[in-house]
Simulated scan of single mutants.
Amino acid sequence: MDEQDRVSAFLDEHNLHAPPAHRVLDLVSETGELAKDVNVATDYGENPGEATVQEDELGDALFCLLALADELDIDATGALDTALSKYDDRIEETDDAGSKD
């Protein structure tokens, strides 16, 4: 069972389904907690080499992202494959993975 299937089963088992808009808000909240970890660990950017995040906070953000994919009926592995292909194309064309937007 892959990670998205595990999250989907957990949502089903505990009746935790929610609208996608709520899942996005949860995701933003959890990534904010990751940013807070980095801010504190780096003394608010003074020591960028000291950046760390707590494993459970990273897990919370991953859970929220996979729950969002589940609620939208999007295969997370397929979405990742699409993104990696897009980045490969950009690197091949411009030597940079960024979108330039």
Rank of each mutant, 00 (worst) to 15 (best):
L62V: 06
D26N: 14
E30F: 00
T82I: 08
A18C: 10
T82K: 12
K86N: 13
A35W: 07
F63H: 05
V53D: 00
N15A: 14
A18N: 08
D12N: 13
T77K: 13
L72H: 03
L72V: 07
P20W: 02
H14M: 07
E57D: 11
D26C: 10
D96M: 11
A51W: 06
P48E: 11
Y87T: 09
G45A: 09
L84E: 15
E3N: 15
D60K: 03
G98H: 12
A67P: 01
E3R: 15
P20D: 00
L80H: 07
A18M: 13
D5Q: 15
Q4K: 06
D96Q: 11
F10G: 00
E57V: 01
P48F: 10
D88C: 09
S99P: 06
D2M: 12
L25N: 08
L72K: 03
L34P: 01
D88N: 11
S99A: 12
I91M: 12
G59A: 09
S29I: 01
D101R: 13
E46A: 15
D89R: 04
V40S: 06
L65Q: 04
V7F: 03
H22N: 13
R6I: 13
D95Q: 12
M1K: 03
P48G: 04
F10C: 06
G78I: 03
A18E: 13
D2C: 13
D81S: 07
L66P: 00
D96E: 14
E46N: 09
G59R: 06
Q54N: 15
R6C: 07
F10R: 02
L58A: 14
K100L: 12
D88P: 00
E93V: 01
F63C: 02
L16D: 07
E71S: 11
E30G: 04
A21P: 09
T77M: 08
A79L: 15
I74G: 02
L34D: 00
A18V: 07
D88I: 12
C64I: 01
E55R: 15
D95P: 07
T31G: 03
T52N: 06
T94Q: 10
Q4C: 10
G98Q: 10
T42E: 06
A79V: 07
L58R: 04
E92H: 02
P48A: 03
N47C: 08
E92I: 02
F63L: 05
H22R: 10
V53C: 12
A76D: 02
L11F: 09
A41V: 00
F10I: 11
L72Y: 05
